[in-house]
Design a protein around this nucleic acid. Structure first.
Length: 102
DNA sequence: GTTGTGACTACCA
DNA sequence: ATGGTAGCCACAA
């Protein structure tokens, strides 16, 4: 996956995250072979169509939190999807030690 | 070219 | 734990 555009590589990696697990933005960037591009991962996910089949909800920040402001509709959508997969929240955070992919 | 903008992070008080 | 800060870097204008 070398000469593809970065956003396509990112989509590919995100698609690999298994159900019930999560990955951080920085982690995705690293796996893509582009360490330091955490922000761009988010920027790319933002461009996803709502009907995308990509598991974008399994991507969270390094603190184990959803990147959206708490209470925003994006936040609630993502949280619900994760909880449906069995990912549990401790208040507003996920225990990365338990759910981190890889 | 240069500038502004993030669904980010690591570090430090 | 929590908030501020300074790096970060591809991309669009």
């Amino acid at each position: 996956m070398e000469h593809l555009k970065l956003n396509q590589i990112i989509w590919q990696v995100v698609a690999m995250i298994p159900e019930g697990k999560v990955a951080t933005y920085g982690q995705i960037a690293r796996i893509c072979g582009y360490p330091g591009h955490a922000r761009y991962v988010g920027t790319t996910l933002k461009q996803l169509p709502d009907d995308s089949d990509l598991p974008w909800h399994r991507v969270i920040n390094a603190k184990g939190e959803i990147a959206f402001p708490v209470g925003s509709d994006g936040y609630q959508r993502q949280r619900k999807l994760l909880e449906n997969e069995g990912v549990q929240f401790k208040q507003n955070k996920i225990k990365l030690l338990d759910y981190r992919w890889e």
